[in-house]
């Protein structure tokens, strides 16, 4: 199919309109990039790239800024959220497509998607007022006294269980991204041709074997897509974690300590940043997140395209 349909004038104008519409994304993203670079130029000039990325110092008083702590916080919260969310989301998709009785499929599917509809500021308020106290009173002390005693693994659960920490933030993040992976995985599962599944059943495969050996490989592409989308969403999530992460610039091995992500730093400090260098460094952080997302998603896309080539047709 040629990109521009020259034969038919209506077709030509329609294709031009759609082309222009998709081009707005390029326009917007380059616009945002330019604004980010322009606003952070002061900080880039002072700290450079390597120093900014590796410095763990975030000190507004001495105007000495580095992104390492925020990058660490972003990775660890996102990583833990994915570890919780991916199995849960795939389980949900399997449940909806393979186990649930027909009359329950739609309601459960909608219910899970409703999780994505809840505004992130609500997640934030709920996290602060409801989840954090539960975490600090019950779950975190329990984790501390059980896994916390195991050597090596125990380092993850040290410190005072305040409920305002990496663990709580990750749990909230994971709840927020479950529906993204789940609904896309479900749609992908549904695309598996019934014929293929039935032939597997006819040779005596169990339900799980059909899911594992037929449905999952067939729909890998979609599942990856869903995970990539979740990852993108989790990296940039702000309000939901801003209330429960504590915004403490430190690199810590314990999940019971406060940390800072790039987004939380922005949300907490952007409106009160009083000096130009401070504000510029915050923009620099945003730029780092922007580039980070770019790399992560480009890698995800690379795998998706490879998977596509492998599984299509």
């Amino acid at each position: 199919m040629p990109i521009l349909q020259r034969k038919n004038p209506v077709d030509l104008s329609f294709s031009l309109i759609t082309a222009f519409a998709s081009f707005t994304v390029v326009l917007l993203i380059s616009g945002i990039f330019v604004v980010l670079v322009r606003e952070s130029s002061l900080s880039i000039g002072k700290f450079g790239v390597l120093k900014f990325l590796t410095s763990t110092e975030w000190n507004p008083v001495t105007e000495s800024f580095g992104a390492a702590t925020a990058i660490y916080g972003t990775f660890i919260t996102t990583g833990i959220a994915l570890i919780i969310a991916i199995p849960a989301a795939i389980g949900i998709a399997v449940f909806i497509t393979e186990i649930s009785p027909n009359f329950l499929k739609a309601p459960i599917g909608v219910a899970i998607e409703l999780l994505a509809a809840i505004p992130s500021i609500i997640y934030g308020m709920w996290g602060l007022f409801t989840l954090a106290p539960i975490m600090s009173r019950y779950i975190e002390p329990a984790l501390k006294s059980s896994i916390g005693k195991v050597p090596l693994l125990g380092t993850l659960f040290q410190g005072t269980p305040m409920g305002i920490d990496i663990l709580t933030a990750s749990v909230i993040l994971s709840i927020m991204i479950i529906p993204f992976t789940a609904s896309i995985a479900r749609d992908a599962f549904n695309l598996t041709p019934a014929v293929v599944k039935e032939s597997a059943y006819s040779v005596g495969a169990t339900k799980w074997e059909v899911v594992k050996d037929v449905v999952l490989p067939y729909s890998k592409l979609g599942v990856f897509g869903g995970i990539a989308l979740s990852l993108g969403r989790a990296l940039g999530e702000t309000m939901a974690v801003a209330f429960v992460l504590g915004n403490n610039h430190q690199i810590t091995s314990s999940l019971l300590n406060a940390a800072a992500t790039i987004t939380v730093t922005l949300a907490n400090e952007f409106t009160e940043a009083d000096t130009d260098m401070y504000l510029s460094s915050l923009f620099y952080l945003a730029l780092v997140l922007f580039v980070l997302s770019f790399i992560v998603l480009a890698i995800a896309k690379y795998f998706l395209l490879r998977a596509e080539r492998k599984y299509s047709r």
Partner: peptide
Amino acid sequence: DIMVSVPS
């Protein structure tokens, strides 16, 4: 995809 994760 990247734009989705740009902080709002």
